[in-house]
């Protein structure tokens, strides 16, 4: 008869990733490079928001973008064509999020020494990216008006881990039952410290407030 031996492990599957993420953050701090992890659902306007924001910041900061998707390189090309900043495409090979190790592999292809800000556009998904620390210095997410103001109740962890929530597509507010004040209330229920900025990436409204926030965070990180 086979004898069975039990080996106790008691280890969270997030533990190794958290160690990797902290060490990556330490390296970025030493280099004076700020990494922003930008998350959202697919179609919330991440890429359009980035194009607008980079337009406002590219004379003040040296910026690069890493686009993470399951497939294709349309986002990386769009950023490069529209803004002229360096952008690289990461493929997650079917994975629904990026972890610290994948982020590090991506950063290996970015010339960090000449940069102030790297923006990581995470895979469009409100669940898994919130669970895996990428090693970024700040987390931000975009919630777009058509998605509804109740998303913070349905995806609590995403709103809990974000320092900043952008509410995008405010130009279509008159056509949707989206309650901006309720949305703020639900976000702050989960995360009282989260900053909330309503924007419209299409018209540019509010994007300057986001650019200003980013500029301040980068300056703080470097000092």
């Amino acid at each position: 008869m086979d004898s069975v031996k039990v080996i106790e492990i008691k280890k969270s599957i997030f533990e190794s990733n958290e160690i990797d993420a902290d060490s990556l953050r330490g390296e970025l701090k030493a280099k004076g490079v700020f990494l922003l992890n930008l998350m959202s659902s697919p179609g919330s306007g991440k890429t359009t928001t980035l194009v607008r924001t980079i337009g406002l910041l590219k004379d003040k900061l040296r910026i690069a973008v890493m686009e993470a998707d399951i497939d294709s390189d349309v986002d990386a090309l769009k950023i490069k064509e529209a803004t002229g900043v360096a952008s690289i495409q990461l493929h997650t090979g079917g994975m629904c999020h990026l972890d610290a190790e994948m982020t590090r592999q991506g950063l290996d292809n970015v010339p960090l020494d000449g940069l102030d800000l790297v923006i990581l556009e995470n895979v469009g998904n409100l669940v898994c990216p919130a669970e895996f620390d990428t090693g970024a210095c700040c987390n931000a997410m975009i919630l777009s008006v058509p998605e509804g103001h109740d998303k913070p109740l349905k995806y609590p962890l995403m709103f809990q881990v974000c320092d900043l929530v952008l509410i995008n597509k405010t130009d279509v507010l008159p056509y949707f039952d989206f309650d901006l004040e309720k949305c703020r209330e639900y976000i702050h229920l989960r995360n009282p410290k989260a900053r909330v900025i309503p924007i419209c990436a299409k018209t540019g409204e509010g994007v300057d407030a986001f650019a200003q926030w980013l500029l301040e965070e980068v300056t703080k990180w470097k000092n």
């Binding site: 069975v4 031996k5 039990v6 106790e8 492990i9 008691k10 969270s12 599957i13």
Partner: peptide, 19 residues
Amino acid sequence: SKDTVLKCGNEIEIKEIEV
């Protein structure tokens, strides 16, 4: 009150292996 905090229930951990 809505001032509440999750105490446990979000674990994804490997408890043990049998070999």
